[in-house]
Design a protein around this nucleic acid. Sequence first.
DNA 1: TTAATATAGTTGCGCAAGCAACCAAGAGAG
DNA 2: CTCTCTTGGTTGCTTGCGCAACTATATTAA
Lengths: 145, 145
Amino acid sequence: MHKSHGQRIGYLSRMSHRYFSEKLGAMGIGPGQTFILKSLYHEDGVHQESLVDNCQLHKANVARALAKLEENGLVKRESDLNDKRAKLIRLTPKAIEIKDDFFTAFRSWSEMLTQGFTDKEKELSFELLDRMAANVEPYYGDKNN
Amino acid sequence: MHKSHGQRIGYLSRMSHRYFSEKLGAMGIGPGQTFILKSLYHEDGVHQESLVDNCQLHKANVARALAKLEENGLVKRESDLNDKRAKLIRLTPKAIEIKDDFFTAFRSWSEMLTQGFTDKEKELSFELLDRMAANVEPYYGDKNN
DNA sequence: TTAATATAGTTGCGCAAGCAACCAAGAGAG
DNA sequence: CTCTCTTGGTTGCTTGCGCAACTATATTAA
C-alpha cells in the first residue's frame, strides 16, 4: 500500500523514541528530553522560555522535561534575580561528562536514517524536511508551540 | 541553531497530530486513528493483525484505536469464525459516508507540507522518507512494531 | 491424545505531548 | 499608587504510544 509523507514521518518519529530510549535511557535521559539537552549543550545558562522556542515544544512539556532532567541530576534550575518569574537553566558537571556519549548516540541515529545516502541526498533530505517544517510553522508556530 | 533530521521529524509528527485533531476531530477520529482508518478505506474487512503490519503500530495501540473507532461508530469488530482468536474489522456506513472528507483532510496535510515544492521535489521528499524508514525497519520492524 | 508452544488480542503501566486553567511576578495606564 | 494586562512557569486532564504480562484459541510434538 502507498504510504504517505505523514505516515512515514510518524513512523520515524516513533522509532526515534525507541532508539533514544535504548541509547540514552541508561544515562537518565528520556526521549522527550533529548532535544532540550541538545539545545543546552549548544547554549547553556538560558531561560526556560528560550528552550521553548529552540525546541518548538509546548512550555508545559519543557517544564516537565526539565523537572525530570533535574531529578536525574543533569540540570539545575535557579530563579533569575532580575525577573523572579523566570528560571535560568544550567547543565551540571554530570551532564558535561556525558556530552560525548550523548552526541555519539545522537549522531548515530542520523547516520542510521541516512544509510546508503549520497552526500547530496543527505543534504537534500535535510533541506526538504526543513522546508516542510517551515511550511507548517506559519500555521502552528505563533501561539505557544 | 542547526536542527537535526530527528528534530524536524519529531516536530512534523507533532504538528500532524494537531492538524488531524483539528480537521478530523469533529468526525470522531483522533490523530492516532487516522492511519488505521486510511488502511481500512484501502482494504476493508481485514484482521486486526494486518492493520498492525500495514500501519506499523504496536498491536496494543491498534487494539485501543479500534476500540475508539468502534465507540465512535466508524468500525465494527466481529470474531472470525475460522479462528476464534482473531477479529475481522469492517467499516460502518457512517465511515463510508465521511470517506471523502477524510481524504480531503488527509491530502491537505501532504499539500501543506510540500507547499512550494516542484513535482520533482515532492517525489524526492517522499522517496527519501521512504528510504529512511526502510533503513530503520531492519532494527525495529521484526519484533512487534 | 495430551502437553508444550505459538499466536491474536486486551489490559496495566509509564512516558511524551497538547490544552486549559492557574499562580506569581513584571509592566503600563489612570 | 493602584488596577489592569501580560508573561514565565506549573499542574490537571486527555490522547498516543511502547512494553510486559495476561487470556484464550490454535498448532505442533511427544
